[in-house]
């Protein structure tokens, strides 16, 4: 605390010409700086538009599985930077856990998933950018093009079904898509993962 307090005032020995620390002078300079800088710090309009538009992506008809582990962040910087280790994402809600690995292959990227407890469910990949109708490649291999009941700019881009062990594979669009995976259970209930860029 002492250090912080001392740090608040310039060391008088360092440059005597500054005179004693005067907070009012700081506020004056800050106000002047704010007048010059504030307009320049305004985010581009499209950034704010996208933020507003994202409200249409609210998931109201499924339970949201939040991201509880991302190897990019949680495995530590060394592992995260190692291109040899795949990215692992874990999403959880209530008793359901969805673990996914991003598999990079020359033929395209895929999501390898595992639902726990294991269940045969319909899985659908959703991708797209907020505020635009744009989606990544709709080419989905063995999957099928999903329905477009999602929010503005969001389009279901692949669908599949998990095997009895709860494993599934979904093709990923090119680039760095923002995706979520929706799992629909036999009783009609659904769990959807948080969106994440992969």
């Amino acid at each position: 605390m002492d250090e912080e307090l001392n740090g608040a005032a310039p060391d008088p020995g360092e440059d005597a010409d500054d005179g004693p620390y005067d907070e009012a002078v700081d506020h004056e300079l800050l106000a002047e700086l704010a007048a010059v800088m504030r307009p320049r710090l305004e985010p581009p309009p499209q950034v704010l538009d996208a933020a507003r538009q994202s409200f249409t992506w609210r998931t109201v008809d499924a339970e949201l599985a939040t991201l509880t582990h991302d190897s990019l962040i949680d495995a530590g910087p060394v592992l995260a930077r190692s291109s040899g280790s795949p990215r692992i994402l874990t999403f959880e809600v209530a008793a359901v856990q969805i673990e996914m690995e991003v598999e990079a292959a020359t033929s395209g990227h895929r999501l390898l998933g595992q639902i726990t407890p294991p269940a045969e469910v319909d899985v659908a990949l959703r991708s797209g950018e907020v505020g635009s109708g744009e989606v990544g490649s709709g080419e989905v291999g063995s999957g099928e093009v999903g329905s477009g009941e999602a929010g503005d700019g969001e389009v279901g881009s692949a669908a599949a079904r998990s095997d009895p062990l709860g494993r599934f594979v979904l093709p990923l669009p090119d680039g760095r898509p923002l995706v979520s995976v929706r799992c629909t259970f036999a009783d009609g209930s659904a769990v959807e993962t948080a969106r994440v860029r992969v």
Binding site: V47, A50, S54, L64, R176, L178, A194, R195, V196, R197
Partner: peptide, 26 residues
Amino acid sequence: AVACGYRLGPVDAAEVSQTTWLRLLE
């Protein structure tokens, strides 16, 4: 401003902004 402070260019900062707002939505 936070995104811009992390040495992200405008495109990346826009992505961070978008993801942050989606996270809030969730």
